[in-house]
Amino acid sequence: FEARLTQASLIKKILEAIKDLVTDANFDCSPEGLSLQAMDSSHVSLVSMVLHAQGFEMFRCQRAVSLGINLASLTKILKCAGNDDSITLRADEKGDKAEFVFESQSQDRLSEFELKLMDIDSEHLGIPDTKYSAIVEMPSSEYRRICSDLGVMGDTVRISVSKESVKFQVDGDIGKGSVCLHPSSVVDKPTEVVKISLEEPVDMIFSIRYLNYFAKAAPLSDTVTLSLSKDFPLQIEFKFGEQMGYLRYYLAPKID
């Protein structure tokens, strides 16, 4: 397996977005691309990442291989890569180590690292194709701000979506609060849009702590999509660009 990405910053940002939720994960390499599925230790949330082969500058994979990686160790290695460095990832048949090569844009600095891989016995879940009742697209910076603002007031947030608005409500020890967003009428920048597609209104409760973990993916994409259906896990998607891939989070709802 060998793959090369022009910008190391993408992998760095992906890692920042998952390392607080997941400690070890299998990076599954196949001819289609690089993917990862992992749950947090309490098994109520899941990360699903896909980087399509065509999003790489070079991608070669003869046989599917899983690279078991400790994310704290990978973070240490990726700290040695400049944001604009290219990154080449290599692994052989044995799958006991992975090689990382970082090259500066001017090609005058080359660094090489080897990471010991581990055997990870991870449980893969089958995520069904779902027709969600409500889909909300909003700026990822807005999502991050709401989660961080409301997170200081309580542990859970009630998300209510109607045709007119999406409302985030918190009810905590010191009091309560809410943030309500209306779909944008006048749009200056596409990245500032709030869009709501609704089959039926939903009203669900989620743990703010997890929503805040997911907000670490905000640097990956200008917009985030929240998909909700009653009594079903919330899906939060950050797309890397049209052809590149995505990072999705799933979170089980809190049920009375």
Partner: peptide, 14 residues
């Protein structure tokens, strides 16, 4: 009482 179930109760193992 508010409960949060594990994801495998929704998605099932592959």
């Amino acid at each position: 009482c508010v409960q949060q179930q594990e994801l495998k109760n929704y998605f099932g193992r592959k």
